[in-house]
Each structure stands twice: as C-alpha cells, then as structure tokens.
C-alpha cells in the first residue's frame, strides 16, 4: 500500500505523516511536490498539516489553486482515499471537497493539546477499524480550527452520518463539537486533530494509527 504525502512549501507535518506511515504503520509513503500535476502511483493521499503557502490570507485559500490540487480532485472524484489533516482539512474545505469552513478558534489563540474524540461512525474507510463511539486520544495544534457551516448543511452531515469525529472537550468552539467530516461519497475526510502525532508509543498515544489502519484495510478490501 502506498500513501502519497503532498508537500506544499509551508507544509510542516509532511515528514511526520510520512514517518508515521512508514515506521509506525509499516506501509510505503512518498512525497508529492505541490506543483506536480500528477500524483503518481499512490493508493491514498494525505494532505498534511502546516501553513501551505504561509496562510497569511485565509488558510488554504491559495493552496486550492495549486497544480497538485487539480490532481487531488480527480483522484477523489475517482473514489481515491484522501485524508486532510489540520491544514489539509482547511485546504479540502477551501477546495470545495468538503462542506463548511474553518475559522479562528473561539479562544482567538493557537491551541496545542491532546483532545478526546468520539468516533461517531465506523462506516467509513477511515474508521472501519474503530468501534462506533470509541474514544480516541489525539492532539490538536491549530489557530483556525473552529468548524462552522450553516444549519442545513450541519443537519445533512449528521443525517448522513458524515460527522466522523466529535470533540469530547471542544478546544476551538467548533459547532456541534465537530472535529472531522466526510464528503458525500465518504472517500474524503478532513480532521483538525493530528493522527500522525498519535501513532508512536513514544509519543504517548497510538490511537491515530486506527485511522491509518482503517485506510489500509479499506484499500485491501476494495
């Protein structure tokens, strides 16, 4: 199984995702440079955390225009698995692959800490290895991770079981405690918490590995 990790010039969790996939998960990983129009032969794509192009404008607002995002959109349209973490989530939302928006944290400050997440659905290629309701311990680190959407969209997301994770201790004011969402086809996920930071026993939690493992098993059965 090969994971492609997209590298924007300001990505800074790209290597962490790469490392988690290779060293903790034991699968292959390779980097995909942001101005490349092709993803190459990868089975899944990770949009990692960081500050894609500095994000002095709205987070992800410039990244959505990058050449690699055209390829990511095609990959997603063909049913490929796309995992957006933190800045990757912000980019997916800006690019229109996921609904809603991520705005400044309610506390107006960057927040880095471990949070507890409730897995709201196991019916996704990203949570198949988890049990519905399972609580995961995974860190967040962001300044603009407050998820917002209009009521109708939120109702729709909930009705369709597309809210994947909810914060048990909401760190950023996200509406309805939403920490991660799926697209309608359920092959694209965006989440603010960092599973790659909870993949190594040395880092204090390996709950993040569940997400990567779910992807591997979903791909194996595809």
């Amino acid at each position: 199984m090969k994971f492609g990790v997209v590298v924007f010039p300001g990505s800074n969790c790209d290597h962490d995702a790469w490392y988690a996939v290779r060293e903790n998960l034991g699968e292959e990983a390779e980097f995909i440079w942001h101005d490349s129009r092709r993803l190459g032969a990868v089975d899944a794509v990770i949009l990692p955390g960081g500050f894609a192009y500095g994000d002095y404008l709205r987070c992800g607002a410039i990244a959505k225009f990058s050449p690699v995002m055209e390829a990511v959109k095609r990959f997603a349209a063909d049913g490929g698995l796309v995992l957006g973490i933190c800045n990757g989530f912000q980019i997916l939302v800006e690019a229109g692959l996921l609904p809603g928006a991520l705005v400044r944290n309610a506390g107006l400050k960057f927040v880095c800490r471990e949070v507890l997440l409730r897995t709201e659905t196991a019916e996704s290629p990203f949570t198949g290895a988890a049990a519905a309701g399972q609580v995961l311990r995974i860190p967040v680190a962001h300044g603009e991770g407050c998820y917002v959407a209009d009521e109708r969209t939120l109702d729709e997301l909930e009705a369709e079981g597309r809210v994947v994770f909810r914060y048990i201790d909401n760190p950023n004011g996200s509406v309805r405690d939403i920490a991660g969402v799926l697209n309608a086809a359920r092959n694209v996920i965006g989440m603010m918490p960092h599973p790659e930071r909870a993949s190594d026993p040395l880092m204090g939690s390996t709950d993040g590995l569940l997400i990567f493992r779910s992807m591997v098993s979903a791909l194996a059965h595809a």
């Binding site: 969790c13 962490d16 955390g49 400050k109 880095c112 680190a141 960092h194």
Partner: peptide, 14 residues
C-alpha cells in the same frame, strides 16, 4: 503560554 506553542510538530517531543 505553552499551549499556544506547537510543542509536538516533527513528532520528536517525548
């Protein structure tokens, strides 16, 4: 103070 700092990026912080 320190919660405003990303103290984990690069996944080396034991």
């Amino acid at each position: 103070i320190w919660q405003q700092y990303d103290y984990q990026v690069r996944t080396n912080t034991l």
